[in-house]
Amino acid sequence: MALKLDHVNYIYDADTEMAHVALKDVSLEIGNGEFIGLIGHTGSGKSTLVTHLNGLVKPTSGQVLFDGHDINEKDYDRKKLRSKVGLVFQYPEHQLFETDVFADVCFGPKNLGLSKDEIEKRAYEALRMVGLSDDFYKQSPFDLSGGQKRRVAIAGVLAMEPEILVLDEPTAGLDPKGKNEILDLLKNLHEEKGITVVLVSHSMEDVANYVDRIIVMDHGQVQFDDEPKKVFASYKELEKMGLAAPQVTYIMKDLKEKGFNVDDTVTTIEEASDEIMKQFT
């Protein structure tokens, strides 16, 4: 199911003194089974863009189409849309509220009006996917570590069985291990379940390691929309937007300047290491 943004504009506090353009003529398509990184400096409009994807915010002008239908039409079933396009906000663990982990994950499917069996089946499946064993089910979500809480929150969205999963900085504030666990989880969901993942992030290194496509936002506009290597090749432009290419990309560029015959478009450590070894054989 493709999600398409067609010339979307969004102005905060339109028609007031405080009017502020957050999205400017954004057109893009999110296809089936993609793993997309959405990148931008703070204030670039990426979070505003995300809230458009399941109709939480209505564009000032332009259309958001899911499967060819305008989701902001008056009689469009947005409730159904929200189970198909799952949104995980920043610090999603702040939204946990039930007395135990299992009940919290059941909350979403319960609201879809499913049978009790189906609700529980989905909750089990979702918790299994995020890698939380049944020891945790009856624990209070508030007794878990930061990374575990976040996985519970993601399970709550997965239990809705979304086709597209959009996560707004899901690794913010986690330590490296917690961060890698979440990113590996997303990779698995994408590869095994075929879920389309849109990952909003500041970290070029994370994005370079996981995604197939990068969308770069700046001043409310899409500046780049391409595969990681091509986007990072424009590192000078990225720097002007307060972003940067992954560190290894810079190392390879420096080496090339020093006369090494290396491919300077690599973006991960493994690639860089192999590329450098070729020089010493």
Partner: peptide
């Protein structure tokens, strides 16, 4: 110890191991 080692250090370490 679950720490994020800088990419430069990781790359250098990988090359040393090779």
């Amino acid at each position: 110890l679950r720490l994020d080692v800088p990419q430069v250090t990781l790359l250098a370490d990988s090359l040393r191991k090779k």
